[in-house]
């Protein structure tokens, strides 16, 4: 069953940006791009050749592929619904997030390889925000491990059930909010970054990949969609006590959950404006504080 879910996830990942965009379009009263637009983009890009700057070296040529490979490898450790990943082991939660980081590092190096001021700026901001995000994510991990006593992504995330919510609901809710903020930032969504903007100066992730084209850009598009899917899965498993239901229902709930979170991201993007760049670290500090408060609440009141 895990394999079915895994391949379904690989297949459905580019749908998430489509859902988000449809939600935003609905809010704005537009038709918006098609639901499957990301698929069309990727297929079209894969058929094209590449334009690569003469400034660049092998770094830019390899970066998108390595970024995609790292994200795909990370996906191997993700549990889906109530199904454990077949390669899960105690401690894979660290490997998972470090593999995502590896994908990001490849893109940062690729961006610097072009020697462009825009991409340098994008890479600089990406490095800054991801460094701040990393500590939030590990705070969340610390909380989950504190809660479940297990060190692997599969066992700890699947281990959450109704009792977790009834006994530790407050702290769990705080952690979910903090992780949602980290999710938005790591996947360059509004209010941290705007994937739709066309002004290089204001972008982060999109500025970083300006000089990739053709199949390279398709890889980046797919890898970012997959990363978004994985982080959404993480938060769905964190929130939904899937353990309490039957396997089939849990599977449906899981995919339904991903859909709902995607819609929520769309709503958030519609109702919140982008934060000023200088304000973003304060949001991160707030999210980290939330996580640490959650850990304290758990250790003092709920243990």
């Amino acid at each position: 069953m895990w394999y079915i879910c895994f391949f379904l996830s690989l297949l459905l990942a580019p749908l998430v940006p489509g859902i988000i965009n449809k939600t935003k379009a609905f809010y704005a009263g537009r038709y918006g791009p098609r639901l499957l637009q990301r698929y069309y983009d990727i297929v079209k890009l894969l058929k094209k050749g590449t334009v690569r700057s003469t400034t660049s070296t092998w770094v830019l040529a390899l970066a998108p592929s390595i970024s995609l490979a790292a994200t795909l490898t990370a996906a191997l450790f993700m549990p889906f619904a109530v199904y454990k990943s077949p390669v899960s082991f105690e401690g894979d939660i660290i490997v998972f997030f470090y593999l995502l980081a590896a994908g990001r590092v490849a893109l940062i190096f690729g961006a610097l390889d072009t020697g462009s001021a825009f991409e340098g700026m994008g890479a600089s901001r990406e490095a800054q925000f991801s460094a701040l995000c990393e500590s939030i994510v590990f705070g969340v991990i610390a909380f989950i491990i504190l809660l479940t006593g297990r060190l692997s992504l599969s066992t700890s995330l699947i281990g959450l059930d109704f009792t977790a919510w009834s006994q530790t609901g407050t702290s769990l809710a705080l952690v979910a909010v903090a992780f949602f903020a980290a999710l938005l930032a790591e996947n360059s969504r509004v209010p941290f970054d705007d994937p739709e903007t066309h002004l290089e100066l204001t972008m982060i992730h999109e500025a970083m990949v300006l000089d990739n084209s053709g199949p390279d850009f398709a890889f980046i598009q797919y890898a970012s969609a997959l990363k978004l899917w994985l982080m959404i899965s993480f938060i769905v498993l964190l929130i939904l006590p899937l353990k309490a239901t039957s396997p089939i229902v849990s599977g449906l709930l899981f995919f339904g959950g991903v859909f709902v979170i995607s819609v929520i991201i769309g709503i958030v993007e519609s109702v919140i404006a982008r934060f000023r760049l200088l304000k973003i670290p304060q949001v991160f500090a707030g999210a980290l504080a939330l996580t640490l408060i959650a850990i304290m609440i758990y250790m003092v009141f709920e243990i």
């Binding site: 894969l46 058929k47 094209k48 050749g49 590449t50 334009v51 690569r52 700057s53 003469t54 400034t55 660049s56 998108p64 592929s65 072009t114 020697g115 462009s116 825009f118 991409e119 290089e200 300006l210 000089d211 053709g214 199949p215 390279d216 890889f219």
Partner: peptide, 19 residues
């Protein structure tokens, strides 16, 4: 990326995007 895609070897050298 470098072997199987239809135009994987098509690489047009250009200059870095400068807005």
């Amino acid at each position: 990326r470098f072997q199987l895609l239809p135009r994987s070897k098509d690489n047009i050298p250009g200059m870095t995007w400068d807005c």
